[in-house]
Design a protein around this nucleic acid. Sequence first.
DNA 1: AAGAGGCCCTGATAGC
DNA 2: TGCTATCAGGGCCTCT
Length: 287
Amino acid sequence: MPELPEVEIVRQSLHKKIKKKSIQQVIIRNRNLRFKIPVDFENFIKNKKIIKVSRFSKYLIIHFQNEDYCLIHLGMSGTIHILDKKKPLKFTNTSFYHSPYLPEKHNHAEFVFDNLKVIYNDPRRFGFFEIIRNHQDLDKRFTSMGPEPFSNKFNLNYVVNYFKNKNKDIKSFLLDQKFVSGIGNIYASEILFASKINPFKKAKRLNKNECLSVILNSKRILKHAINKGGSSIRDFKDISGNKGNFQKEFKVYQQEGAHCKRTNCKGIIKKKITSNRSTFFCVSCQK
DNA sequence: AAGAGGCCCTGATAGC
DNA sequence: TGCTATCAGGGCCTCT
């Protein structure tokens, strides 16, 4: 499901729903995620009040009282659903705990609040939860990761220096969370199309202008995607079941065989698969 | 040390 | 209908 924009959409809606509320009960249905949900997880979370929900990169950060935190990573297929007793979902005429579109299979954890239930569902189990017990550890947690695209640290000096002598292709770097945090397979292709750069060009071959282009387009495209509610390919929805709209604006992702959308470009969009991941690009205008 | 590739897992879809 | 193969938004690990 989720790259930075989608995780941000989930964060916004989750924050609205659960800030200042206490978790009354935690129900674990299946501990098997990328990392097993620890046995003391329920006790750690239970009765804690939520201050806010923030985000770094593709990680949701639940802030509890007393500087306790829970990280949630959605992996490829993690989704968060909410059932609100006061605002029953459309079509929900059954009980509080059942809704027609709400998945039952692959629910891993359910967090029960007063009048609310938050559900974590993850068929492929690439997501995970992580407990953090103080504010220093939270700061430390992300130090080995690169800056978010929005950060001032993601600037021309940083990128030009980072790319010196780097023999790997530029797309791999956009996916490399140690270089920049939050970009995934969809937005990497879109950013490079906007920058007119071939995804397989070696990073060390990018000139200053191209580096700048990658920086500016990363910031712009991710912000734009957030404003559009994220990309709903497959079944991404926010926690209340609303779809995003950015998928309508894909220029290259999933556009194999289409004509390039750039004015005056006669190129065709091509798909290339490397190490099991697809890359989309225009054969003509991305040099 | 950097870079390439495999692997974790289930589900949807395409092709026969 | 039902088999098999392929692909999917991530990131960790190992090998060279």
